[in-house]
Each structure stands twice: as structure tokens, then as C-alpha cells.
């Protein structure tokens, strides 16, 4: 019986082999490469110890990408969750056409973020952009939206948030539908107003949904890549790079494979720590309820 039981563990061997070869092995090899000055194709390279790590903390492009990655992650999470809850509460009311509105909000989730980035180019373009056309009608001066790095970072955050807010909305709609109506009835007898209703009943009972949505949005935002490539290419200069796009640029554009490897590992550790702290923190709050 016991041996029979153990043989079923063989079922996950194919999956583990793939993980070993395409996740664990690259990870370990990445640690090794990060201590070399490899350029990405040459056969000879030297082991240079921790020099890459020392350099990367002094590299202002890395610092910039690091801050941007945090903004992409935290900014997208905040925007998507606030907007997601608002949309879900709004679309949880009964009115004609709400199914259609939900569909429209979720539709962009299906589109490749890369394509969404290119479409956004037609909105933020200076000379012919759709947004500047609106400004023109309002007789306001056109804005060169993507010329400023700081603004572009927030534009990218907003584009990513609006594209994927449908996911949060759907999670919150499911969460709202799981709240038993009797809580609201009891509260109505006690005579609470609608903001109390939202903050004292709806929000606490949505905690599991909040955990799911925050986790998804945070991981998605911290990994942001495609839309940056499409809309700004990391520019102007190095101003809108995330760690992901910077690694790509240093590796394929700058032939600094060892260095890019070191950035990758720092990014890996950083994202693991941030996501774990956030997820743990949220789960604790759930238990306390």
C-alpha cells in the first residue's frame, strides 16, 4: 500500500524536471554569471567576485529602474484596487446594460500589453495624439506627454492599471456577491449611513478579495515590461526603465551579461521579499476578522 502510494509522486516528475531545467538551473547559473565580467557571447571571461554588485548600487540607471519598479508595482496596486472596488460596487447595482459595461471594462485584459502600449502611442503622441486633440478643442496648449521621464512613469502606471483593472473588478464583484444580505439588513435596522455601511461592513468582508487582488496587481506591476517597451522603450534616456527592461537593455544592448545577471538577482530577491511581506500582512488581517 505504502509503495503504491509513493509511486503517484512520479506524476509530478515531468513538471519538476521542467522547473529544474528552466527555473532552478538558470537561477543557479545566474548567481555564477553575476560574479563574472561575461559580455554575453565570448567564450572567455573572468570571475570578478562581487564587483558587479558593488557597481550596481552606485549605478544611477539601476537606482532609477529600482524606484520605477516600485512605482509600477505600488502605483498599479493602489490605482487598480481603489478603482476596482469602486467599479465593482457601482456595477453590483441592478440596472440595464451593466453586463455590457462589465464586458467593456474587462475587454482590455485580453489584449497583449505590448499592443496596448502601441495603441497608447496614438494617445500620447505630441503632434497628432488623441489627447492633444482634445486639449485643442478645449483651446488648451498641447502637452508633450512622454518628454518628461517622471510623468511618463506615471502614465505607464496608469495605462497598466486601466488595462488590467477589469481583473480587480471581477474579483471584487465575486467578493461582494459572497457577502450575505442579512448583514446589511441588520445594519439598516441599526440605522447606519451608506459610508458607514461601506467602511464597516463591505470593506472588512472583502478582505479575502483584497488579498487576491493586491497580490495579483503587485506581482503584475513589479514585472512590468511589455508596455514600457512599446510606449517609451525605457526612455527618455533611462528614465522609465523597470528592472526588467533595464536588464534586457544592458544584456542585449550593452553586452554586459554578468552585470545584467547581478541586477536580475537583486530584482529577484527584492520582488520575493516585497510580495511575501505584503501577502503575509494581508493574510494576517484576514485571520483577525
Amino acid at each position: 500500500m505504502q509503495s503504491k502510494n509513493r509511486t503517484i509522486n512520479l506524476f509530478y516528475v515531468p513538471a519538476l524536471v521542467l522547473f529544474a531545467f528552466f527555473v532552478v538551473y538558470p537561477f543557479v547559473k545566474g548567481i555564477y554569471l553575476s560574479m563574472t565580467n561575461w559580455n554575453g557571447y565570448s567564450r572567455s571571461f573572468k570571475i570578478i567576485g562581487l564587483a558587479n554588485y558593488k557597481n550596481l548600487f552606485a549605478d544611477k540607471n539601476v537606482r532609477r529602474a529600482f524606484v520605477n519598479t516600485l512605482i509600477y508595482g505600488a502605483g498599479s496596486t493602489v490605482i487598480q484596487n481603489i478603482l476596482g472596488i469602486l467599479l465593482a460596487v457601482f456595477l453590483n447595482q441592478k440596472f440595464r446594460g451593466r453586463g455590457f459595461v462589465r464586458t467593456v471594462i474587462y475587454l482590455p485584459v485580453m489584449i497583449a500589453p505590448l499592443i496596448m502600449g502601441y495603441i497608447m502611442y496614438f494617445f500620447f503622441n505630441y503632434s497628432r495624439g488623441a489627447l492633444n486633440d482634445i486639449l485643442k478643442i478645449l483651446s488648451l496648449a498641447p502637452v508633450d506627454w512622454l518628454a518628461d521621464g517622471n510623468r511618463s512613469v506615471w502614465i505607464l502606471t496608469l495605462v497598466n492599471s486601466l488595462q488590467f483593472v477589469g481583473i480587480s473588478m471581477v474579483i471584487y464583484l465575486a467578493g461582494l456577491q459572497n457577502i450575505p444580505g442579512m448583514y446589511y439588513e441588520a445594519a439598516a435596522i441599526d440605522g447606519i449611513n451608506s459610508s458607514q455601511k461601506f467602511f464597516c461592513i463591505t470593506l472588512p468582508l472583502l478582505m479575502p478579495a483584497i488579498t487576491s487582488a493586491v497580490t495579483l496587481n503587485l506581482i503584475g506591476g513589479l514585472k512590468l515590461y511589455d508596455v514600457i517597451i512599446a510606449l517609451t522603450g525605457g526612455g527618455p534616456g533611462y528614465d522609465t526603465n523597470s528592472l526588467s527592461t533595464l536588464i534586457y537593455r544592458y544584456y542585449f544592448g550593452g553586452e554586459r551579461a554578468g552585470y545584467a545577471s547581478a541586477i536580475g538577482l537583486v530584482m529577484f530577491v527584492f520582488i520575493m521579499i516585497v510580495s511575501n511581506i505584503v501577502v503575509r500582512g494581508l493574510q494576517k488581517r484576514q485571520v483577525e476578522l
Binding site: 509522486n9 519538476l16 531545467f21 527555473v23 538558470p26 536588464i247 551579461a257
Partner: peptide, 27 residues
């Protein structure tokens, strides 16, 4: 053991694939 395997698999979900781009590509 299986719980460890499962935690490992869930952890992979969080890995940003570009963080190991260099070594993955070289492999």
C-alpha cells in the same frame, strides 16, 4: 515532502522571468 514541493511551485509563480534572462538565454 509534497507540501514543500507545492510551496516551491507556488513560489515560481512570483518569479519575474526577466530576472534570470541572462542565464536562461545562455542555456
Amino acid at each position: 515532502f509534497n507540501k514543500v514541493v507545492q510551496a516551491f511551485i507556488l513560489g515560481i509563480m512570483m518569479v519575474p522571468p526577466l530576472s534570470i534572462l541572462v542565464s536562461l538565454y545562455s542555456i
